[in-house]
Amino acid sequence: MGLSDLLGFSRLKTGLTRTRDNLTTQISRMVKGKTTLDDALLEEIEEMLIGADAGIDTSVAIAGEMKRLAREKRYVNDEELNALLREAVLSHFKQQDYCGFDEVVSSISKPVVVVVVGVNGVGKTTSIGKLANRYRQAGKKVLIAAADTFRAAANEQLEVWAARAGAGLLTQKPGADPAAVAFDSYTSARSSGVDLLIIDTAGRLHTRVNLMEELRKISRVLKKVDPSAPHEVLLVLDASTGQNGLNQAKQFKAAVDVSGIILTKLDGTAKGGIILAITSELGLPVRFIGVGEGIDDLEPFSAEAYVESLFGSERAVE
């Protein structure tokens, strides 16, 4: 674990302070004087998970897992219950402590092409700014392509972020074909020795057939110039999203073969529990989490830290 990981861990912890505080006190209250895991307690745990947007099916499954684990090792106090909860969630959560994105970036011959997709308002542009900054800090040459040619002032917003991160920016007129922007940016990235090309796309609801088709076209066009591109398609997901998040992930994956997730806005009270359903059902890893509006507020995801922060036993310091 490097310094940034430690940093990320503590940031996530601050972000989830309220959550954990609630949960730990809840757990302590619930288990007071109990020595077995009864149905009422399981039901409360289920509700807790539902309250974190894990969804009813996932929550029931985790509660079931707890029941199974409890049969093997009877718990006696709330500390052990916490451990049990963590274990049950982690066993359901198909992702281990794994980021993987750094390896992607360093393993492929440049330019590495990353397409960033998602519904409207989840924080795609902000995440791209942070992502660009992260790899600029690591000494990579980064180019951002503004393929969001629909939203008013999308270019201007990206300009600000690109300048902050010290990354190059390629824009076209509003209304231009996003696939053409992607194509041009690739050509430009290759000729100028860019290490990492990040393509920003317009926010779109996953139910809009024609807009999803537009994404497919971006991917097709990229494949023409480099059959292995895009090397990474990141879906940005707002932590406050409810059960619809699973549909989003499914539809985007079907359209452009999403390879990972950026979970944003974890600095609020939302817990982003829907990623439990997404990782277990679709096997999509969470690559990064967004924990604030600053340019450094992007951290590699760690399942351990995430679950730990949700159910950690030590008291949070406000």
Partner: peptide, 12 residues
């Protein structure tokens, strides 16, 4: 409010 908001809608 975003129609896709989950359980946290109550808090916000």
């Amino acid at each position: 409010v975003d129609a896709m908001t989950g359980q946290d809608a109550v808090n916000t």
